[in-house]
């Protein structure tokens, strides 16, 4: 279990901002800024953050759609960045992705069965193709009769199942789930989350599960990382994370999730963050969160806190003043 499948080492992803007639590079959007993560075999790493925090960019660097500006990504101990095109093609079999939007992630002019068969054809695994596709459809809970239907004939949840079947087709070891349930109706979210969990057990999969919702993550992740402006703010195993979350941003995220319990909702103490997300082109100096942090001091404006263990072993926090347990118990315990 403890064998590292994916290691991300100090990855930076900076996109140039080009301006003017001559397309001069004026600045860089620092979408991902010095992120290091490890995902062990068979576990689920949840990455949480708001829009613009760089979580989707990070996902795209892992599957090799983007080449990071610097840093290294290791899969099964080997760097994926110095692979040639052919080796990369081989690697793609092991790392697959499930997308957020079940509407735009399927080719509207291809039948469901063909969509699932496409990766198999790309790797010339055409033996018993139709049977294999039907197996996959069965695995994700689609009927064999759906084989010839077009994507628009399915509902959102069913389309997401097609997307999952497509990702499973090549027997990958790692699946990156980029907000797989956030575009779905509330009543089908649970179906898809449960399906992903069942598949993980059955097929011994490893997930990187990206979401903006900490409550979804709680149900699926073994390890959680919170990102803000391209950086990891807090990272820990799930249990310690939800019990002893101590980064002010994590706590703000937790307290911003409305509870489905009106009385607790009225009593609970909230950290409502002031202001808005700063531009990733000009991130604040010092701690990137200081502009919105209720506890920021002068030191936070100047020095960059490092991501280090505070409290529980392996519970990493990037903050000078991590919140103590008493201070936030009223927010998280409900």
């Amino acid at each position: 279990m403890s064998e590292a499948l994916l290691e991300i080492r100090d990855v930076n992803m900076h996109f140039p901002i080009k301006e003017g007639v001559f397309q001069k590079t004026k600045n860089h959007v620092k979408a991902v800024n010095g992120v290091s993560l490890t995902v062990n075999k068979g576990e689920t790493l949840g990455i949480v953050g708001e829009s613009g925090c760089g979580k989707s960019t990070l996902a795209r660097t892992i599957v090799g759609l983007l080449e990071p500006t610097s840093g290294d990504i290791l899969f099964e101990g080997k760097s994926i960045l110095d692979l040639n095109k052919k080796q990369m093609h081989g690697l793609r079999r092991d790392i697959q992705m499930v997308y957020q939007d079940p509407f735009s992630s399927l080719n509207p002019r291809m039948k469901a069965g063909d969509i699932i068969a496409a990766p198999l054809k790309a790797y010339r695994m055409t033996e018993n193709l139709e049977q294999r596709v039907k197996e996959l459809m069965d695995l994700v809970g689609l009927k064999a009769a759906d084989y010839n239907k077009l994507p628009h004939q399915f509902s959102g949840g069913q389309r997401q199942r097609i997307g999952i079947a497509r990702a499973l087709a090549l027997n990958p070891k790692l699946i990156i789930c980029d907000e797989p349930v956030s575009a779905l109706d509330v009543s089908v979210q649970a179906q898809v989350i449960n399906l992903l969990e069942d598949l993980q057990k059955e097929l011994d999969l490893t997930y990187v599960f990206i979401a903006h919702d900490l409550s979804v993550i709680k149900h699926i992740a073994d390890k959680v990382a919170v990102m803000y402006l391209g950086k990891v703010m807090e990272m820990s195993d799930s249990e310690s994370f939800y019990k002893h979350a101590c980064h002010p941003y994590t706590n703000a995220l937790l307290s911003a999730i409305p509870l489905t319990d009106p009385l607790k909702e009225k009593e609970r103490q909230r950290i409502v963050l002031k202001g808005e997300l700063p531009s990733p082109a000009n991130p604040p100096t010092g701690c990137v969160f200081h502009t919105r942090c209720p506890f920021a001091t002068e030191a936070c404006k100047q020095d960059i806190p490092s991501l280090e263990a505070k409290g529980d072993a392996g519970h990493l926090v990037s903050c000078f003043y991590p919140m103590n347990v008493e201070k936030k118990s009223s927010i998280v315990n409900h």
Binding site: V63, Q96, M97, P108, Y123
Partner: peptide, 26 residues
């Protein structure tokens, strides 16, 4: 920029196939 093209790339589908089976029909 639509995701199914990206999905095709991550599924290891080759450029000629993407051009003829994914882009052209659409």
């Amino acid at each position: 920029s639509v995701q199914y093209i990206e999905a095709a790339k991550t599924s290891g589908i080759s450029d000629p196939v993407i051009l003829t089976r994914y882009l052209l029909p659409n």
